[in-house]
Structure formats: structure tokens, C-alpha cells
Design a binder for these strands. Structure first.
Lengths: 112, 112
DNA sequence: TCCATAATTCGTCATTACGCGAAATGAGGA
DNA sequence: TCCTCATTTCGCGTAATGACGAATTATGGA
């Protein structure tokens, strides 16, 4: 994960509609949700939705796959993992114990 | 954590300079870093830096405390934790096992 | 009290992001 | 092949964001 990719991801999430879309996809699970259904559930116009889904995809936060006539969108949870690792890289200068007890073990923060 | 707060936090991180500031603070650790030193290390003008630090603080991502003549800024790692929890809330509709193996246990995703 | 340094506020200009209607594109079923 | 529905592209007006110099405020030492 590099700076530019992280910024793209954070930018994608820093928007009311896109954040709602992403969280909906998380709740729907890895099976995927058709674009049209997202729009129906969240009341988003097709052209607007299309742009937001494209942004989320460009940011690597969602994947898409065609199923018959519809395109299914699914969240990429590994992207979230990567973001957190990037944020916490070299946490506390590698000083074990300095950043303890935040419950992010394995995310770049070496201690629990 | 609510939607608005999450958007503020993601917006704050969705910027080259602010992301560099936050990651620097993470690496520096919870002890805090004086504002001026941040500016010196990252080559940011005082007025610009001030605005960015204010944005990060408004978003709840950093805390500040006065030490003598300087103001020390420290990262709030619990905020990162909160963001991830918010993102993954009700992951997979609560279906244990559906979202396995992403290494985010305890972050809102119920399985490992 | 006075000064030097730390940090913030303000104003301006340039750049970019959003929403959405209308039109175009694309894929699959009959 | 033709038709229909799903999705994308384009263009416009509007609104928000960012950088930074200059001026201002605030803090602690002499």
C-alpha cells in the first residue's frame, strides 16, 4: 500500500453516499449485490450511482462481476486491512508496548 | 461512531499532507510531537500546518496538549479502531464464517 | 514589563468534486 | 436479429477545498 492508493481509498470513503454504499455492501456480504438494488435501497439515481461505484472500484474497495444482466458489487475487506496496516506502519517507532491495548493487533501495531 | 464523524475522519485522512502528518505522529508515538517540529520534518508552512492539524483534531484523529511554549500533537489510535468498527459493522449480516480470514477480528467482523 | 517564538486567523485565488438529466453503450433473451 | 433493461458517459451549474502571505494572538523567559 502506498500513499496515493491510501488517499484514493480514504477519499472514496469520505463521502456520504459512497460510505453508505460500502457499508451496505459489507452488511450484504461477499456474495455481492446488484448495482440496481444498491440504488433502490439507498435511493440513488443511476448516473450518480455509477460514478460512485466506479470511484469505489478505482480505489480498490469493491470488486465487480457480471452475473447475467446485472453487475454484482462486493466489498474488498482485504483493502480495509491494508489501509489500517498502512496507517499504523512503524507504530511508535517499533517500540513494543508503547502502543498497547488498542485492539489492533496484527494491523501494524506490534503489541496488543 | 456515526456517519458524520466517520466522514470527517476519512476526509481528514484523504489528503496527502494530513495523511503524512498522521502517519508521522503514529510513528512518533503517543508521547506527542510539537507542531513546529512536524512542520520542519515534513516541510509545511505554519499557516498551512495549522489548518491541517485543526482538521485532524476536529476529526478526532489527534489530540493536543500544551507543554511549555509548544503544543504537542499525538495520534488517537482508538479513533482508527472506531473507524474500522464502523466500516465493518454488521459484517456479512452477522453471518459468522462468511467473512473469515481477513485478520480483522474484533473490529466488527465476528470471525477470524 | 518587554521581547522572541509558537501558533492561529483571515482574505484571495485556483482547482476540484457533486448531482443529475439526457443521450449513448452494452449484454442477454425471445 | 431485434428489443429491453442495466449501466455508463457527457455536460452543466454549483459548492467546497487547499495553499499561503500578512497580520494577529498567545505564551513563557529575561
Amino acid at each position: 500500500m502506498e500513499q496515493t492508493a491510501a488517499i484514493d481509498a480514504f477519499s472514496a470513503l469520505a463521502h456520504d453516499t459512497r460510505l453508505r454504499i460500502f457499508r451496505l455492501l459489507v452488511q450484504r456480504g461477499p456474495g455481492g449485490t446488484p448495482a440496481m438494488e444498491i440504488g433502490r435501497l439507498l435511493d440513488i439515481k443511476p448516473s450518480t450511482l455509477s460514478g460512485h461505484l466506479a470511484a469505489l472500484k478505482r480505489a480498490g474497495l469493491v470488486s465487480s462481476e457480471r452475473q447475467h444482466r446485472e453487475i454484482q458489487y462486493a466489498p474488498r475487506l482485504d483493502a480495509v486491512n491494508g489501509l489500517v496496516r498502512f496507517l499504523l506502519e512503524d507504530c511508535c517507532g517499533g517500540d513494543e508496548g508503547a502502543c498497547s491495548g488498542i485492539g489492533l493487533t496484527g494491523q501494524g501495531c506490534k503489541t496488543a
